[in-house]
């Protein structure tokens, strides 16, 4: 059975996005890969004990939660900052008419 052509690294755009974001931060020297990978392994094994990792979505949900905590621990991001942007993006989506590009209002100037 040949399935190289089935290579499908990412099942959802946000999986790719959080993956790339993590790689990029590491490439920029914001943390050591081994520190990230240790944090991620620990988080995964915690989830795995519940038998939780079945789909890619489960895996990337752990990734997302871990990177958020990891960046907070490293002093790169505060959780209230993320909350502000989360709310701002939600509002932007809800106030943008269907079919138009959704843009974030600049938080720092507004």
């Amino acid at each position: 059975m040949i399935n190289n052509d089935e290579y499908r690294p990412f099942h959802e755009p946000w999986h790719a996005q959080i993956f790339a974001l993590t790689i990029h931060l590491n490439e920029q020297g914001h943390f050591e890969w081994k520190d990230w990978s240790q944090a991620f392994s620990e988080a995964l094994s915690l989830e795995s004990s519940n038998g939780a990792i079945v789909k890619d979505e489960d895996y990337y949900l752990v990734w997302l939660k871990t990177i958020e905590e990891f960046l907070a621990q490293n002093g790169k991001l505060k959780s209230d900052e993320i909350t502000s942007y989360f709310d701002a993006w939600s509002a932007a989506f809800l106030s943008t008419p269907h079919g138009q590009p959704v843009k974030l209002k600049n938080l720092s100037s507004g």
Partner: peptide, 29 residues
């Protein structure tokens, strides 16, 4: 109908916050 899922919004929020701090370049992603 236009609101993405919670993790999608969370990723956007993290990305925006990091861009705002000049820590990442969206084109590099």
């Amino acid at each position: 109908s236009l609101l993405p899922s919670e993790p999608e919004l969370k990723v956007k929020a993290i990305e925006s916050a990091l861009v705002n701090q000049g820590l990442i370049d969206p084109a590099a992603l």
